[in-house]
């Protein structure tokens, strides 16, 4: 069972992100593996263990994104591949999907490709289904559990209305959500292995393709309007008195 986990590197969730001179700035906050993609790696490792398979972590990004791949290796992935090319700076999700699809084909023989549900920076949540479409493979999105049997995979999708159980033949593309299980911490051995690993870097030429032209582009970056957050504390002698006052305040807001 050959499994590919697609991961991206993003600024840490605690970072103070701002618009500065039309660019996104996150100060000196660290870049980390996209937290949703840690679940993708976890899901891939669970299947590797259940099915005696291998996990390849795949990332498109700058040279520095090797750190995110090393995190996946330290968690237990068997190998990692970085796709990096100066021409890939302005990818939209469809472009990322085309490049990922080419890399997945070059890796070859994948039974399952597992994605996170969305990136923290762009937050589109489109790349998994777009990659599946480019590859012509079935898409099982937002899986909270995965079970492989024979040549097919069954997942429980976590949707607005509850859990939907869906099945498709392998090879297939999946995305996973938090219900898959907490991502494991890198082990000491894993960290040592990762620090010694050499991560191959593929260029667009290695993939035999040109940079896909971006169809979706940013025209402007805006800091969201500052929220006025003057808090009013509600106090009183008894819960009933506090509740009375709070109820009046809420009703006066005319939000009910």
């Amino acid at each position: 069972m050959k499994i590919i986990a697609c991961i991206k590197q993003v600024p840490d969730s605690e970072a103070k992100v701002k618009a500065e001179g039309g660019q996104v700035s996150w100060g000196d906050a660290p870049l980390v593996i996209n937290p949703f993609d840690e679940y993708a790696v976890e899901g891939a490792l669970q299947q590797k263990e259940a099915l005696n398979g291998s996990v390849t972590a795949l990332c498109i990004g700058p040279e520095s994104a090797k750190e995110a791949l090393k995190h996946a290796l330290a968690m237990g992935a068997d190998e990692a591949i970085l796709v990096s090319d100066p021409a890939l700076n302005d990818l939209d999700t469809a472009g990322a999907a085309k490049v990922l699809a080419a890399a997945i084909k070059k890796i070859g023989d994948a039974d399952m490709v597992i994605f996170g549900r969305q990136t923290l920076d762009n937050g589109a949540g489109l790349t998994p289904a777009q990659t599946a479409r480019v590859l012509g493979l079935p898409m099982l999105g937002l899986a909270g559990s995965i079970k492989v049997e024979g040549g097919s995979v069954t997942v429980e999708r976590v949707l607005e209305e509850g859990r939907q159980i869906m099945n498709a033949n392998l090879p297939a593309v999946l995305s996973v959500v938090q219900g898959i299980g907490e991502p494991r911490y890198p082990s000491f051995m894993g960290i040592r292995k990762a620090s010694k690993a050499t991560i191959p870097v593929w260029s667009l030429a290695d993939l035999g393709m040109e940079a896909p032209a971006a169809i979706v582009t940013r025209s402007e970056l805006v800091n969201p309007p500052a929220q006025e957050t003057s808090i009013e504390m509600i106090t009183g002698e008894t819960p009933a008195e506090i509740a009375e006052k709070l109820a009046d305040k809420i009703i006066a807001e005319k939000v009910l």
């Binding site: 489109l126 777009q130 479409r133 999105g141 607005e160 979706v216």
Partner: peptide
């Protein structure tokens, strides 16, 4: 914007060679 439409729009955009503005 729902779990279903993110997938549906994503794939349709690939078919039509266009893009999706999400959420």
């Amino acid at each position: 914007t729902t779990a279903r439409t993110r997938e549906l729009a994503a794939m349709t955009a690939i078919d039509l060679n266009t893009g999706v503005l999400t959420d």
